[in-house]
């Protein structure tokens, strides 16, 4: 149930945008809405968005958008307060939804990294793992992508305001490629395209520029990663290469994680 304090006196929902461990690209996707930005800030009250606005309104908030993964002890605490502050909590982007590129540390030794990278590693307070927000608190909705598709953010807000389910597809990227008439990178160019196991939503951005999908929107509904992996092996890619393809922006989310572990063992 939305709390009354989550809306302004004139009935606009208060929206908060949070940053965790991330590159800020998803927050910038909101600001990149250019043509729709004025409509957006007209329909909602931007109550907390440090990257965009100095003024802060106190919680509760009707909608909370979270960017980034949990990778420090401080973030591990903070996400629980945010969950309490927001009626509807949405993760935006690969980091918040799957752990992001920084979740590669989950297969490595973080302490060793800090020794190599920082002159004074004793100042670094990092968790051994980078994990998605949903590993810590209940998440109401997830938007994928590195970065998110800004129009999916707009759709999420418009649907929430209208009280309908957001039209966010969960099928493969192939559907978007074929609708757009983009030629298949895998079949007609022999490129290792992750499109057949990756969720649509980007609008077939990379394939439209003759580049194979690298899976930044994460796994689609019920992906058959093993079958695609066999095809890649048929194209001459090694299990180690397939492991690296799966362990990128969404490597730490199932079923990419399990599949990458299996290919790592085959190497």
């Amino acid at each position: 149930m939305p709390r009354t304090g989550a809306f302004t006196a004139d009935g606009k929902p208060k929206v908060a945008v949070y940053k965790f461990s991330s590159c800020d690209g998803c927050q910038l996707a909101i600001l990149n809405l250019e043509d729709q930005l004025l409509d957006l800030v007209g329909a909602i009250e931007v109550a907390y968005f440090v990257e965009a606005r100095r003024r802060e309104l106190p919680p509760p908030y009707a909608i909370g958008l979270v960017e980034g993964s949990v990778s420090t002890p401080e973030e591990e605490e903070r996400i629980h307060k945010i969950r309490r502050d927001c009626d509807f909590l949405v993760t935006i982007g690969a980091c918040a939804t799957s752990g992001g590129i920084q979740a590669l540390r989950n297969w490595a030794d973080v302490e060793e990294f800090t020794r190599y990278v920082y002159a004074y590693p004793e100042y670094i307070k990092a968790l051994d793992t980078a994990t998605p927000i949903a590993a810590h608190v209940f998440v109401d909705f997830e938007l994928r992508g590195c970065p998110v598709n800004r129009f999916q953010i707009l759709e999420l807000v418009a649907a929430t305001l209208a009280g309908r389910k957001p039209a966010i597809p969960t099928y493969s990227l192939c559907i978007e490629c074929k609708r757009r008439g983009v030629s298949c990178r895998l079949v007609s160019a022999g490129k290792p395209c992750l499109g057949p196991v990756t969720q649509a939503g980007c609008g077939a951005l990379c394939p439209a520029y003759n580049r194979a999908c690298y899976g930044c929107f994460g796994p689609m509904e019920l992906p058959n990663v093993d079958s695609l992996g066999e095809r890649f092996i048929g194209l001459g890619y090694s299990p180690a290469e397939i492991t690296r393809m799966l362990r990128s922006f969404n490597g730490y989310v199932e079923p990419f994680k399990q599949a990458s572990d299996r290919y790592a063992q085959r190497d």
């Binding site: 418009a158 192939c174 298949c184 057949p196 992906p223 058959n224 079958s227 066999e230």
Partner: peptide
Amino acid sequence: KRCLGCGNCTMVCPTCFCSTVSDATEL
């Protein structure tokens, strides 16, 4: 075991006709 469930076959099939109808509201 081999089917990816990706839908490519239906997209390229010249007789497949399934579509979805959806309403979108503007902000």
